[in-house]
Write a protein that binds this DNA or RNA. Structure first.
Length: 350
DNA sequence: AATACGGGGCC
DNA sequence: GGCCCAGTATT
């Protein structure tokens, strides 16, 4: 039997039940694909459910405030996905009358939709024979064909894409694409794959050469950077605090946070000598204490954030910078914040 | 061609 | 502590 037919046969017997497998509505397929970019099914599923419940149609999503979209996305990471999601919803609702593009080529034009996602939507919703090449596909192909080209090299990306096109099942693109991904997720998984019971184990080049554990080859990424975040949690008359929105490039764009002093350490003295802080509390009495003695280490894939929260009690409103705003405790939960701050807020403000 | 961009789970 | 996850946009 052909490679593609074996995968589809395996898929039909082993596929997990998922809500986005019950529909070919491009809105829902698109939504699920954006949510699942670089995200495990188990992590993305609750977000898919809340998004489809809150925004049943692309018009509902388009009509939402960006802040509401970010709030619902809170905790999922890669927040540009949420901003692009909202922008694309507005574009489809307002410029395309709510009708999604129907081809790989046209889908590719949408913000936040790249090669993988355009292929997924085109194949699942419209049966276009375009192959998905995600992390699962790289792994399955590199092992089955014994390919040692790094999957994140320019050469590798071209090579795997070419192979994927050749292997594509033209009669059933939707099931084939989902089959190879599901196969990579459940059977040919990164650690301890089930080669013994694998339906492809009689023809798997990687298994024959004993190289399953080393495949796929991936160029290693750079060392993570350390950063030092000192958050100033102003407590004004025991009922209000100050937050600001992150703008420009960098992490957490569009999310809110407390006034931040970023330097090369986590200590009280460096805060008290900070010019922005001094300007804010100039002439007012305040009391400053550390929330916890040890910094919280928040680990992102590319940087480690050594973070301390400083509780600053005062009885008058300090001088605000232009982008800062006063909020009541009870309203703070309505703002989208990084999970690092969300955890602090949950413990400190109940 | 590289780098930035989250958070969580697994080993 | 390192790797990986239904990748994309920017530099």
């Amino acid at each position: 039997m052909k490679f593609s037919k074996k995968l589809i046969t395996w898929y039909l017997q082993n596929k997990r039940s998922m809500p986005w497998r019950e529909t070919t509505d491009p809105y829902r397929i698109w939504l699920s694909e954006i949510i699942l970019q670089q995200t495990r099914v188990a992590q993305g599923l609750p977000y898919y459910l809340s998004f489809t419940k809150t925004f049943p149609t692309v018009f509902d999503l388009a009509n939402a405030k960006e802040e509401e979209v970010l709030k619902l996305w809170q905790g999922l990471g890669y927040y540009s996905r949420a901003r692009n999601l909202h922008a694309t919803a507005k574009y489809v609702a307002n410029e395309l009358k709510g009708v999604f593009p129907k081809t790989y080529k046209d889908l590719l034009e949408l913000k936040g939709v790249g090669d993988y996602t355009a292929s997924a939507i085109a194949s699942i919703c419209y049966k276009e024979a375009v192959p998905v090449v995600d992390g699962n596909v790289y792994r399955v192909l590199s092992r089955y064909f014994g390919i040692e080209t790094p999957i994140n090299s320019t050469q590798g990306i071209k090579e795997y894409k070419k192979l994927a096109i050749e292997l594509m099942d033209h009669e059933d693109p939707a099931d084939y694409n989902q089959a190879i991904m599901e196969f990579g997720a459940l059977q040919c998984k990164p650690k301890n794959p089930y080669c013994i019971v694998c339906p492809l184990n009689d023809s798997c080049e990687g298994l024959k050469k004993g190289k399953i554990e080393e495949l796929p080859v991936k160029l290693k990424k750079l060392k993570v950077k350390k950063r030092y975040f000192n958050y100033l949690v102003y407590i004004i008359n025991e009922k209000q605090t100050i937050i600001q929105q992150r703008t420009g490039n960098g992490i957490w764009q569009g999310l809110y946070e407390f006034p931040l002093v970023e330097n090369n350490q986590n200590n009280l003295e460096s805060i008290q000598s900070d010019s922005i802080f001094k300007k804010m509390v100039n002439g007012v009495k305040y009391d400053i204490t550390s929330f916890k003695e040890e910094p919280i280490v928040h680990k992102l894939s590319h940087q480690h954030l050594y973070t301390k929260f400083y509780i600053i009690k005062l009885s008058v409103i300090p001088k605000l910078e232009g982008h800062q705003k006063i909020v009541n405790y009870k309203d703070i939960h309505n703002y989208p914040v990084p999970i690092l701050l969300g955890k602090f807020i949950d413990s400190f403000f109940q």
